Amino acid sequence: MRVLLVIPARHGARRYPGKPLVALTGPGGRRASLIEHCWHAARAVPGIARIVIATDDARIEAHAEGFGAEVVMTSADCANGTERCAEALARLGGGYDLVVNLQGDAPLTPPWFVTALIDALSAHPAAEVATPVLRCDAVALADLRGDRQAGRVGATTAVFGAEGTALYFSREVLPWQDPGRPAAAPVFHHVGVYAYRPSALAAYALWPQGPLERAEGLEQLRFMERGHRVLCTEVEARGVRFWEVNNPEDVARIEEICAAGRDAASLPPEA
C-alpha cells in the first residue's frame, strides 16, 4: 500500500499568524520550528512512501526546503488542511492508496497514531476517512476545560458510536457531564490527524462548506454533513502526553511536556 503523508501549513492562521515558523524546544531537546518538529514526527512513521509539506507561503517553503523537506505549493484559497491535502495530491498526480494529513501544529503525534489509521481503513473498506481519538485522563480533561473557561479556542472533542462512526466533533467539551455526578461517559480528545481514501479527498474539495463546519471551524464536519462516514479510531497514549499548538500559550505547554519526558527518561531504573 502506497501512502502519501501531507503536512499542511499556512502562515496566515487567524488565531496564531506565523505559527508554523514559531521556534520551540521539542522532543529530544531539539530547538526547531514547529513545522520542522512535525516533519520529524512524520518521518518516524513506518511504511510511508512520500512525505510533503503543503503550503501557500514562500517563507514556509524556503524554511522547509532548508531542513530537507519536499514542498508542494498550493493555493492561498484553501480553506483548511483537508483542502490543501486534496490540492497537493492533485499536483503530485495521484498514484497513492491512502493520504494521511498530519497537521502542522501537532509535533507530539506518535507514529502509532498514524499507523492505527492506516490499519483501520484497511480493516473497514466502507470507511472513507479515519481519525484518531484519545481517551482523556484527568490532566487532559482539565486542560480542555481550562481553555474553554479562559475563552480560548483549544482542542477538539469527539463523540462516536459503538462501531466507531463519528456522531459529532466540537470545540466544546462533549459529552456534557453533570459536575455533581460521576462521569457517565468518557471524553475523547480528537487528534488532528486524518487518513483519507483519495476518492473521498477529491470529492471533499468540490463540496462547499456546510453550516456546522463554519460554526465549529472543524474541517471533518464537511464529510459528515454530506453523509460520509468518518471512523474514529481509539489510540493509546502509551505513557506519553499529546497536545497541539492551537494558541500561543500552547508553546510553553508543549515544551513542558517534552521537558518532563526528558526528565523521566533520565531517571535511573527502580531497583
Score class of each variant (00 low, 15 high):
160 F>S: 09
137 D>M: 07
212 L>E: 14
68 G>L: 04
100 V>Y: 08
100 V>S: 06
82 T>D: 02
258 C>R: 03
212 L>I: 14
148 R>W: 05
193 V>H: 11
248 P>L: 09
178 D>H: 07
242 F>C: 10
153 V>R: 13
179 P>R: 00
269 P>K: 00
74 T>Q: 03
207 W>D: 10
80 N>C: 10
62 A>K: 09
181 R>V: 03
12 G>V: 04
135 R>I: 07
42 A>R: 06
89 L>R: 09
123 A>V: 03
57 D>A: 12
24 L>M: 14
250 D>K: 02
203 A>D: 09
68 G>E: 05
127 A>R: 06
42 A>M: 04
75 S>Y: 02
48 I>S: 11
105 D>R: 13
140 A>E: 12
243 W>D: 05
253 R>V: 13
180 G>D: 14
162 A>T: 15
161 G>P: 12
220 Q>C: 11
261 G>Q: 15
24 L>K: 01
78 C>L: 02
10 R>S: 13
179 P>E: 01
16 Y>S: 01
2 R>I: 00
137 D>C: 09
87 E>P: 12
223 F>L: 14
113 F>E: 08
253 R>G: 09
86 A>F: 02
83 E>R: 15
218 L>I: 13
118 I>M: 03
95 G>M: 06
162 A>V: 14
74 T>S: 05
139 V>T: 15
213 E>Y: 03
133 V>D: 07
206 L>S: 13
137 D>G: 13
64 A>C: 10
36 E>H: 04
270 E>S: 15
32 A>N: 07
185 A>L: 09
265 A>P: 14
160 F>I: 01
115 T>D: 05
71 V>L: 03
39 W>C: 12
260 A>L: 11
241 R>A: 12
132 P>T: 04
